[in-house]
Amino acid sequence: MTKKRGAIAFLLTTVLLAGSVIPLQAGELEDAIKEQRELQKKGEQARSQLNNLTHTADKLQNQIKSLATQITVATNSLNEKQVAYNQAVEAVNQSEQELKKREEELANRQEVLRKRVKEIYQVGQVSYLEILFEAEDLSDFITRVEYFNRLIDNDQKILTDIGLEKARIEEETKVLQAHRDEAAKLKAEAEKAKAELDAKKKEHQVALDTNKKAQSDIFEQIEQMEADSNAIAEKIRKLTANSGVVHGTISTYPLPGCYEISDAYGWRIHPITKKKSLHTGTDLPAPTGTKVLAAGNGEVIMADWYGAYGNAVIVDHGGGYTTLYGHNSKLAVKVGDMVKAGDVVAYAGSTGWSTGPHLHFEVRIKGESTDPMQFFR
């Protein structure tokens, strides 16, 4: 690669050739470059904000997923607690019904015995005289008296048994009521835990929706800045392009050995703004540091940071043809250098608005973009 002349010499020579027209163009070029750099700074700030928002959105989405899983677990736990509580309530109801039945039975038995004792008390000795007179003999009399005594003793035993059964059921009911109260407590705790998780998930979703709205606003800003940047880039090309002499043709593939195309020329969904836009070049994936070659003979008219293109090189091939090499990790040429087809002009990277190491390769004819792959078919 040889250097034909430096930028200052180039401007002086052009001034001598073009007279008073060039100072106007030089001023316009300086203003355009300054405006491009300002857009670049704003673009980087917007992209930084977008990266922060995207990072936050990813965290929120992961947290929402985690909360959704926790809510599922909490819901299952609540359902189990609800079933346990329902079973405890049913057990208490059954026990209370059984207790009520025993209480009624004991009350009936007590009433029967009370009446019998009352009758015996009221009749008193008359009853024994009746038993004596009605008895056939002494033995029959004793038998009759023992019968009445045993009847009363049996009633007392039945009362005792019923009382013991009632006490047992009362104790069981207390235990079941305690289980029911504990089940109710656990159910309330499960309901509270689920409600808190639901509230957290709702808060995170609101935050995520707000984040997405902010991303959308920045996408619009980036899209507008990209459009402005492209317009200024076109202006710079027209102000700097030397279309008088054809230095060479576009014939050399810029990335020998790297023939995969990750994003072809044409309309697409922009990887940064997520909106449909014209992709003015072809993206060729390549490891960072891969040599980028000039596609033909020409003059370097730009070698610097170039907004969304990152570190970029533009070569003027004459006749209105220019090539652009964007997103480089490092540049190997400077403005004014004359290059030949196959000379190294940069090294592939992922600077500017890029999602990974690759070369963005453009060919423009009189400022209009065209499919660069047509020159290598």
Rank of each mutant, 00 (worst) to 15 (best):
T2H: 06
R5H: 13
G6R: 04
A7H: 05
F10E: 10
V15R: 08
L17T: 10
A18I: 00
G19W: 02
S20T: 14
V21L: 08
P23H: 02
Q25E: 10
L29R: 11
A32T: 08
K34P: 04
Q36C: 12
G43H: 03
Q45T: 11
A46G: 09
S48D: 14
S48H: 12
D58K: 13
K59R: 14
L60S: 01
N62E: 13
N62R: 11
I64V: 07
T69H: 05
T69S: 12
V73I: 13
A74H: 03
T75W: 00
T75N: 05
Q82I: 02
N93G: 09
Q94L: 06
Q94G: 03
K100N: 12
K100A: 15
E103W: 01
L106G: 04
E111F: 11
K118S: 14
K118G: 14
E119R: 06
Y121H: 10
Y121P: 00
Q122V: 11
L129T: 14
L132V: 12
A135H: 03
D137G: 03
L138K: 06
F141Y: 10
F141T: 07
R144D: 02
F148L: 14
R150F: 01
R150Y: 02
R150E: 12
I152Y: 10
D155W: 09
D155T: 09
Q156D: 03
K157D: 12
L159R: 13
T160P: 05
I162L: 13
I162Y: 15
L164G: 01
E165M: 06
K166Y: 02
R168V: 14
E172M: 12
V175R: 07
Q177P: 05
A178I: 07
H179R: 15
R180N: 09
L186V: 15
A188D: 07
E189Y: 10
K194T: 04
E196A: 13
E196D: 14
E196F: 08
D198T: 13
K200L: 14
K201E: 10
K202S: 12
Q205G: 10
V206D: 14
V206P: 04
D209P: 06
Q215P: 00
S216V: 05
F219D: 08
K235F: 10
I236L: 02
I236T: 09
K238I: 04
T240A: 03
V246I: 15
H247S: 03
T252F: 06
P256K: 13
C258M: 03
C258W: 08
R268A: 12
R268C: 14
I269L: 08
I272V: 15
T273W: 02
K276P: 04
T282L: 04
T282D: 02
P285L: 04
T288E: 15
V292T: 03
A294R: 00
G296C: 04
G298H: 00
I301W: 00
M302Q: 04
G307K: 02
A308I: 04
Y309T: 02
N311P: 01
V315K: 00
G326N: 01
N328K: 07
S329N: 12
L331T: 03
V333G: 03
V333H: 00
K334D: 09
K340V: 06
A341H: 00
A341C: 12
G342V: 10
Y347C: 07
G349M: 06
G349R: 01
S350Y: 01
S354P: 11
S354M: 09
R364Q: 06
R364S: 01
K366I: 01
G367W: 12
M373G: 05
F375Q: 07
R377F: 07
